[in-house]
Computed example of a mutant assay.
Amino acid sequence: MTTAVRQPPHHRNTVCIKLYGCQLPDCRARYNERRRAIAAGQQQPARILIDATETREHIQTLQDLGMSLSGIARLAGVRHPTICAFVNPRPTMRRGRRQQTTPQTAARILAVRPLTVIGAIRRMRALAHLGWPTSHVARHAGISPRRAWELRPNSVISVGLAEKIAVAYEELRTTTADEHGVDAWKTALSRKRAKTNRWPDPAYWADRMDAIDDPDFEPMYGLTRREIIAHDAHELIRFSGLSRAAAAERLGVSKAYVEHAFRDHPQYAVEVAA
């Protein structure tokens, strides 16, 4: 009875010789060259690996928030199979899921944050200033109007949907809906909604595109100087512990100006010390 000789899965490194006894001339030459390098102290340092538990848990947290593995991979700038290996058991891995990873891969994945819908909403609201109804923006993005209307702030959005709306925004932000034959009553209604709700327009976001997707960024659009002072004084007093006089000095105005600002905009004066 003869026993079949096990064949190496590939011949890219010295594993085929060490584990399978490969005798191919190229493999033997590569193996001998590596041995000589080791003997001469020229061996390349081993690749640094770290425990993958934190990375895997971060991926699972993002999944629980509604993000797909493919979306996480795209935001992290790594291959989709790389992400899958952290959470999905693979028969080719002795311990199922990936147990170690490089610091570089871990850093890329850990830097991924949930992609909220706020950026998509801000883009559609900005286009309303140009008369674009949500339904028209949605169709231009290749999605159903109902899907666009159902978007809610602070919810998670897929990378693919966010990219479609971002592309549509870039294509529409320099033109008006009137130029594309949208009914006048629809464009007027869109502009009225944008103005009434004080949604930032494309010109406002042009210098703030790095913040348009940031849910923690608070647009200060359409506000008077006095309202901005009231807002900033409120932040300084509440979170920095300054007095009204100190906050006024920091903002370059008088204490009386801050008092008047709070009087005109009492929502900022709530629970603020004198």
Rank of each mutant, 00 (worst) to 15 (best):
L172I: 07
P219V: 08
A168N: 02
I59Q: 11
A247D: 12
P215F: 07
G142P: 00
A188Q: 09
T105V: 13
A261W: 07
D216K: 06
A39I: 09
T116P: 00
P215H: 01
V253Y: 09
Y221N: 09
Q267L: 14
I48Q: 13
R250D: 11
R263L: 15
I165Q: 04
K18H: 13
P25S: 03
T175V: 15
T105I: 11
T105P: 02
S68H: 11
G160V: 05
Q63V: 13
N13K: 04
R193E: 11
A247M: 06
A85E: 05
M220C: 02
E271S: 14
V270D: 11
A233Q: 05
R95L: 13
R113I: 03
N88Y: 14
G21M: 01
D232S: 13
N32I: 01
S68M: 13
R198I: 05
C16W: 08
G119V: 07
I48V: 15
E249A: 15
R122Y: 08
A76R: 06
Q104I: 12
T92K: 14
L75E: 14
T2F: 11
A162Y: 07
Q100A: 09
A111L: 04
L242Y: 12
P153L: 03
E171N: 10
M1V: 10
K192S: 10
D216Q: 09
T175W: 05
E218N: 01
A141Y: 04
Q43P: 00
I59M: 06
S68P: 03
D178S: 10
L189A: 14
V117W: 03
D216F: 01
L69I: 10
P89C: 11
P200V: 02
H10E: 01
G96N: 09
L115G: 09
H11A: 13
S190Y: 09
I165M: 06
A40T: 10
I83N: 06
R56N: 08
Q23W: 05
C84T: 14
P81H: 03
A40H: 13
G181D: 11
V117L: 01
H234W: 11
I59T: 01
M67E: 14
Y268F: 15
T224D: 10
T187K: 12
A4I: 08
S144F: 01
I109L: 04
A247V: 03
I143E: 02
A39G: 01
H58S: 10
L189N: 11
C16A: 07
M220V: 08
L69T: 04
E57A: 14
R173H: 07
P91M: 12
N13S: 13
I165F: 10
E179R: 12
R47H: 06
S70Y: 13
A29P: 00
A168H: 06
M220A: 08
H180E: 08
T61F: 15
P9L: 11
A148F: 04
I109P: 00
I118E: 05
W149Q: 10
G252R: 11
F217R: 08
T224R: 12
D264Q: 14
V78N: 05
H231G: 05
L62Y: 12
I59K: 06
A4Q: 11
N13V: 02
L19Y: 10
Y31P: 02
R191H: 11
T175C: 09
E33I: 02
L251E: 07
H180G: 00
V258L: 02
V182Y: 02
A111V: 02
R123M: 01
T134W: 03
V272S: 03
T116C: 00
A233P: 04
